[in-house]
Amino acid sequence: MSEITPDLVRHLGVLARIQLSDAEVERLTGQLDVIVDNIAKVSRVATPEVPATSHPIAMSNVFRPDVVGDMLTSEQVLQNAPDAADGRFRVTAILGEEQ
Rank of each mutant, 00 (worst) to 15 (best):
A23H: 10
L95R: 01
V25L: 15
V62Y: 05
L72C: 02
E26V: 15
D33A: 15
V45S: 04
V50H: 02
I4G: 07
M1Q: 14
M59Q: 15
V42F: 02
E26P: 02
V45N: 03
R27C: 11
A93C: 04
H55L: 11
F63N: 07
E3A: 10
L95G: 01
V42M: 02
T47E: 06
G30T: 15
P65T: 08
L95D: 04
V45W: 01
V91P: 01
L78W: 05
D70Y: 00
I94D: 02
N61I: 10
V77T: 06
F89G: 00
P6Y: 12
P51G: 05
V77Y: 01
P65Q: 10
Q19F: 06
S54F: 13
V36A: 14
R10I: 12
T73K: 04
L12G: 10
M59A: 15
S2L: 14
T92F: 03
D70V: 09
L12N: 08
D22H: 11
A46M: 13
D22V: 10
T92S: 02
I57T: 14
L78E: 00
D33V: 07
A46E: 08
L8G: 01
D86V: 00
V14W: 01
L78A: 04
I35K: 02
R44H: 04
V36G: 01
L78T: 03
T53R: 14
R17S: 14
T29N: 11
E49Q: 14
N38Y: 06
D86F: 07
H55C: 12
V91G: 06
D66P: 01
L28Q: 10
N38E: 12
T29E: 13
E49V: 09
M59H: 07
R64G: 00
R64V: 00
A58P: 14
V25W: 14
R44K: 11
F89Y: 13
A16R: 12
G87V: 08
I4Y: 07
V9G: 08
A81Q: 05
T92D: 03
S54G: 10
R27D: 15
A81W: 05
A46Y: 05
D66H: 10
P56M: 10
T47Y: 03
N80K: 12
I18K: 14
I39F: 06
R17F: 02
G96A: 09
L8Y: 08
L28F: 15
G13M: 06
L95A: 07
V91A: 09
L95T: 01
D33H: 12
A58R: 14
V34R: 13
V14Y: 02
V14G: 05
R17Q: 15
G87N: 10
G96M: 05
N80I: 05
L8F: 12
I35D: 07
A93M: 07
L12V: 11
D22W: 09
V42T: 02
G96C: 02
H11F: 11
Q79H: 01
G30K: 15
Q76F: 04
D66G: 05
Q76T: 03
D22P: 05
L12P: 04
N61Y: 09
V36H: 04
Q19R: 13
